[in-house]
Nucleic acid binder design. Structure first.
Lengths: 192, 192
DNA sequence: ACTTCACTGTGACCTTTGTCAACAGGCGTT
DNA sequence: AACGCCTGTTGACAAAGGTCACAGTGAAGT
């Protein structure tokens, strides 16, 4: 079960893991199963784990005063899920993270993060993730303020075809910040 | 001239700098002046420096096919300016960074980044910056997909009152992804 | 002093998108 | 088989925001 994680760490940390290091990781990471619709994180709670998805799919969202959900992340295998702010700074989260399919995770407990970061490949990976996340959210932001709804959808579809397959359209619409009807119409129009 | 930078590094890196380290930094960082409207980075070029603003103000923006500008960052003293993707991965940038006021910078050359990262406080600061940037762009994204134009402006004003003072309204509007007229109307309406 | 230019505000109009509502298909549960 | 529930689609209408045009102000440059 840890192999996808080891692969991931070695790829993004740009270093190989020794057997001893793997063993150390094995002892720290906690396996966890979530059933569809179960929460990984709820608003107001501190996000004490960062999770690595081995199998399944999750969504992260906030809920505004009117009760509307706004999706910030849709994640599948080999993605990390967390509220970075809450996890790093131990502050209450504004977000929910919910399993959208039955999901298997590996959890990185916040209180053992420093131990894990002693492993060079993990440190490198963490660095790279932070970097990549920052770059990706910058691009998403650029799209969001620059492009009309349809274009944003097209970009998204091109970037994450598998996500589009596995989540219903109204979730994608929420991720893009548009109404599900708008997405539906945009799609049918772009077929002609 | 380097004192604001040293303060910044110690604050965000959560470690003090020795005199030897300060000397090392002094030898690597390049002072640079930009006059108003001069470019720090142009689209298509690789961003070979990351700049620390000692005095002045800059804006980072992309230009779409219709020639419209979309502002990604408005920066003043004690902010870093760079295209992270271009800088880290040495790829051509999609962005412009332009001095909005006469500006004094300290430049961190990409080819000497590894040297600088040997200094623990700098490594810590870099980490923290990446973290903070990611968290900030996540919040901005959440606002952008969740809130109507006026609310976004109010949030922004509350978060960065000094930026609002120093940049003209049409730049702020572009940062928020709205037309300058919309912002103008929103402002006059919220006074009543 | 005069011109120019950048910036802001406002009205009229149009486009895009959101909202509300109704409907239909699929799918699992009982 | 019957019932919900989730999902996607479509229409009618409303609201938000964009576009275009014009005017006024003030600062900078000549």
């Amino acid at each position: 079960m840890l192999d996808p994680l080891f692969d991931y760490i070695q790829r993004y940390g740009k270093q190989l893991l020794s057997e001893a290091e793997k063993e150390r990781i094995r002892r720290i990471m906690l396996p966890k199963r979530l059933r569809r619709k179960q929460y990984f994180l709820e608003e107001g709670k501190v996000c004490t784990y960062t999770g690595f998805i081995v199998r399944g799919a999750t969504r992260q969202f906030s809920v505004d005063e009117q009760g509307n959900e706004h999706i910030l992340q849709l994640a599948i295998e080999n993605w990390w899920i967390t509220d970075r702010d809450s996890y790093m700074n131990r502050t209450p989260s504004k977000y929910f993270i919910e399993a959208w399919e039955d999901t298997e995770l590996l959890l990185m407990p916040r209180e053992r993060l420093d131990e894990l970061l002693e492993i060079p490949a993990i440190k490198g990976m963490f660095w790279q993730m932070s970097e990549n996340n920052h770059i990706a959210s910058q691009k998403r932001l650029d799209d969001t303020i620059s492009l009309p709804a349809i274009k944003r959808y097209e970009h998204f579809e091109q970037l994450y075809p598998e996500i589009v397959q596995r989540f219903p359209a109204h979730q994608i619409a929420s991720y893009l910040g548009i109404a599900r009807e708008t997405l539906s119409r945009a799609r049918s129009r772009s077929l002609r």
